[in-house]
Nucleic acid binder design. Structure first.
Lengths: 214, 214
DNA sequence: TATTTGACATACGCCTCGTATGTCATTATC
DNA sequence: GATAATGACATACGAGGCGTATGTCAAATA
């Protein structure tokens, strides 16, 4: 069993800590997660944690950065495979809601994160999501598809709405039905951005979102 | 110095605890607030706290209930004094954003609350705000002003957007400018709800919100 | 080979929370 | 009106959790 290069061992230790913390934070929550416990579950001690991440908050930052990077990647895939910019944007929003339904994301990124690390708009990572959305909105504006709203402002409003929609859905008695209601209302709001207001008088039929329709 | 009736003394104790906790939670945050410290600042001990509220979370619930009741009251005043239902609704949304700018509300209700007590949509109190908004939307739908969206869904999306807008504003370098951008974008989204899409092609001029324009 | 660096583990003290217990005033019972 | 019972608190105690200071040992460096 030849020893792996040093760099790799260290990276593995960091990864193990992040993984263990991610699991603990995602299940019992940040406050209830004992550093002794989850470092032990990774075969390490708090010593390693403090050495690599400074403190518990530092580890939370690392965990969030990891999750957020995954989220950005997934969002880029979604928007890239759409036919139009607008459709890509709408799909991205829907995907954002769907991701926010995942317990790990909801708990760590959307609840504990802001409480422990402060407002997410200040995080370098979270801004990636917003920036990605802002860029799309900017393009849509240049293209003349949407009204002349500030892209970042719209992006933040939309991400806030998505986030709350997701929490509402996740905690509802009937997530399926709730999800449909939320997505429909969400589309109505998004269409408010469109320059030509070509929308139906009666919105009881499915809205123009694509990816979640069955 | 005649002793006040017993009931009043107890209510006063509860009120003192809630006030002290509210101040501590609002300034240093829930996690950093020492029960020993803020009970002492009220001239009491943790004994009183545990007797009345069970635990730290119980006290947080009481604090949030108090703040939320105030918020509902303020929102009702705002919507009541508007000319039309729609204008009342728009004003209420703006007021919601403005309230979310207050550090105490932001910290206790919007950040620590969800982290400690779980999703706000499950709180009896927070639902008051949503319900109030939902009722207004229901009326607007009955009146034929807005499209046939689910009122609760729309209310949740809007409150989520408001909340994030507020946090964005509060943490920005230039809250004034940011606020204007946010409110403008917010109005564009809200107008998406309107049945007759009578909106300008160019939204560079002030939107139709009233209360925050100078 | 001697030295230094750095990745961890161990040991210690402080703080905080929750509970169990105690005390004293008020209320109920006779 | 004396006594018992209730309830509103304070005090005392124990358990964990966090952060830091210190120790150890392997790897890089010279």
């Amino acid at each position: 069993m030849g020893h792996r290069p040093r760099k790799e061992m260290i990276a593995e230790t960091r990864a193990k800590l992040v993984a263990a913390a991610r699991h603990a934070f995602g299940t019992v929550g940040y406050a209830e997660a004992s550093m002794d416990d989850f470092t032990a579950s990774a075969g390490l001690t708090r010593g390693a944690l403090y050495h690599h991440f400074g403190d518990k908050k530092g580890l939370l930052q690392a965990v969030i950065a990891e999750i957020d990077a995954e989220m950005v990647g997934r969002l880029k895939v979604v928007s890239a495979r759409a036919d139009s910019l607008w459709q890509g944007f709408v799909d991205e929003c829907t995907a954002y809601i769907e991701m926010a339904l995942e317990p790990e994301i909801q708990r760590i990124v959307l609840r504990d994160g802001p409480a422990v690390l402060g407002d997410p708009s200040q995080w370098p990572s979270q801004n990636e999501c917003i920036r990605s959305m802002s860029e799309n909105l900017q393009k849509l504006r240049d293209e003349g598809t949407i009204l002349a709203v500030d892209p970042e402002a719209a992006a933040r409003l939309i991400s806030g709405a998505s986030l709350h929609a997701a929490q509402w859905i996740a905690n509802s008695d009937d997530p399926e039905a709730t999800s449909k209601k939320a997505v429909k209302a969400f589309n109505v709001l998004l269409e408010g951005l469109l320059k030509h207001a070509g929308r139906p008088q009666n919105s009881n039929q499915p809205a123009l979102i694509g990816s979640t329709q069955d």
